[in-house]
Design a binder for these strands. Structure first.
Length: 461
RNA sequence: GCCGGGGUCGCCUAGCCUGGUAGGGCGCCGGCCUGCUAAGCCGGUGGGGGUUCACCCCGCGCGGGUUCAAAUCCCGCCCCCGGCGCCA
């Protein structure tokens, strides 16, 4: 019984309740789960006993030579079956309920995760870069940094930067979300020319960086079966995020994490092969059903984008170090781009079912005067591997444990583009392209190299 | 999409026709033996329950059915291989 949640449920249900309370969930499900688990175990014992009796009689029939004896035993077997069927029905019912409830339980919150239920309760652990802060945002900026005791060096500017949505559509005129809305709906987009080059360059930058670190490059399926999704996300996320294919058991992936986690489903991994480090590249499709009217303008929150994703299968005892490695990778990528950011330790209530701990990397957005999520870095411990039956086999004693899975954004194209548009525009609307992207652009004659120029003059009041 | 062949306990494989406790090899784990290594010998090797080494149940791609009894017979689905068709 190596699954951490079941283990805790049986050995220390109070701890499990605490974890649920920290997530702002009803801890009552734990009592219900304990009750169902006990009842299930009781019924398993009963049913096993009857099956045993039936097996005994059945074996005697095979041996019986006397026809009268045989007839008598078959009658006896039939009688036992009638008795068995009733209990089996009950067991099946309880087993289903138990399974449903167990699979609905969220991951156990790690002790280093801060309390809290909203974004405001996330705790910044570090700031990097020298953010440009418009004079009108100064007070807001101080609140977002000093509240946590950080003194963040920043450059004060007197002109107000243009928001990423207006930069894209009005200043640069390289995106059209109105036409896209007509064609596909809101939260879709057409991108043109330099922005498309930028998208491609960002992906290559991340792929190059991650593969140099020894991560294996993977292009995964963009659609997966229902069974796979239930192995990697919870039912709520499924409803809010996942697009399905009509008349097929296929669903568009919301991130490469899903097919990467499933790459080893129903597999025993020898411990000497761990950690397995992958970098996936794929489009991501998200319904954003729970998003309401948030970020309706521009390309910050959209139904499709490209992402380079880091993924690690790890031994349980190494996963917390791996989480820090993934965080460092993502940070290095954003430092390379020169985008000022902070890293927050996401509070218990905002974690999502799957993760035991999660960091978000948030870029400073000079036009909004806020840090906004660019990347997220999670340790899912054995939550996914239990469901997908991914185990590691230890040589010593041939022990089977569940591996730990971790995932992290390397680069999500559209979001990173919004950060570039806001951070690297000058007063005239010219956008400077991060130097690290140059090598991925210079081989193409028509790609921009150093700057993206505005289509029209920036009007300021 | 059609026709044919196949999917067995980590890997390979026997058993299927003719229903009656799933056998062997490799690998691995533990032990014995042995100057060392190798070989050899013995036991173990999936999931679950349990009074935790007694024992029991389940497990032969998945799900149903027939039967006292299903790896074995029947039906549906998934996947793999070969052939045909279609196709960027």
């Amino acid at each position: 019984m190596p699954w951490s949640i079941l283990k805790l449920l049986r050995e220390n249900p109070e701890e499990l309740k605490k974890s649920l309370k920290r997530r702002g969930m009803d801890p009552g499900v734990v009592d219900e789960a304990v009750r169902l688990d006990n009842e299930w175990r009781r019924l398993v014992r009963l049913v096993d006993e009857i099956r045993h009796r039936h097996n005994q009689v059945t074996r005697m029939i095979a041996k019986a030579r006397d026809p009268e004896e045989r007839r008598r035993l078959i009658e006896e077997a039939k009688r036992i079956i009638r008795e068995r069927e009733e209990l089996e029905k009950k067991l099946q019912e309880i087993a289903r309920e138990r399974e449903k409830l167990l699979l609905s339980l969220p991951n156990i919150v790690h002790e280093s995760v801060p309390d809290g239920q909203t974004e405001d309760d996330n705790v910044p652990i570090k700031f990097w870069g020298v953010p440009r802060v418009w004079r009108g945002h100064l007070e807001e900026f101080r609140r977002q940094t000093e509240r946590w005791g950080f003194k963040v060096p920043h450059e004060v500017i007197d002109w107000k930067p243009v928001g990423h949505a207006d930069m894209l559509e009005k200043v640069l005129a390289l995106g059209d979300t109105y036409k896209a809305a007509q064609v596909a709906g809101s939260r879709f987009y057409y991108l043109f020319d330099d922005i498309v080059w930028l998208d491609a360059a960002l992906l290559l930058y991340a792929i190059d960086f991650m593969t140099r670190k020894g991560y294996r490059l993977v292009l995964p399926p963009y659609m997966v079966r229902y069974k796979v999704l239930m192995g990697v996300i919870d039912i709520e996320t499924f409803k809010d995020a996942i697009y399905s294919i009509k008349d097929e058991d296929l669903y568009l992936i919301a991130t490469a994490e899903h097919p990467l986690a499933a790459l080893y489903m129903e597999t025993d991994i020898p411990e000497e092969e761990l950690p397995i480090k992958l970098v996936g590249v794929s489009p991501c499709f998200r319904r954003e059903a729970g998003a309401g009217n948030r970020d309706l303008k521009g390309i910050f929150r959209v139904h499709q984008f490209h992402k380079v994703e880091q993924f690690i299968y790890s031994k349980p005892e190494e996963s917390w170090d791996m989480l820090e490695e993934l965080r460092e990778n993502t940070e290095e990528l954003f430092r390379g781009l020169g985008i000022p950011y902070r890293v927050v330790n996401v509070c218990a209530g905002e974690l999502g079912h799957v993760a035991a701990k999660k960091y978000d990397l948030e870029a400073w957005m000079p036009a909004q005067g806020r840090y906004r999520e660019m990347a997220s870095i999670s340790n899912c411990t054995d939550w996914q591997s239990y469901r997908l039956r991914i185990r590691l086999v230890r040589r010593k004693g041939m022990v089977r444990d569940y591996v730990h899975t971790l995932n992290a954004t390397a680069i999500a194209s559209t979001r990173t583009i919004t950060a570039i548009l806001e951070n690297f525009q000058d007063e005239d609307g010219v956008v400077t392209i991060p130097k690290v992207l140059r090598r991925y652009l210079e081989i193409f004659p028509r790609a921009p190299k150093d700057y993206i120029y505005p289509a029209r003059r920036v009007k300021r009041e």
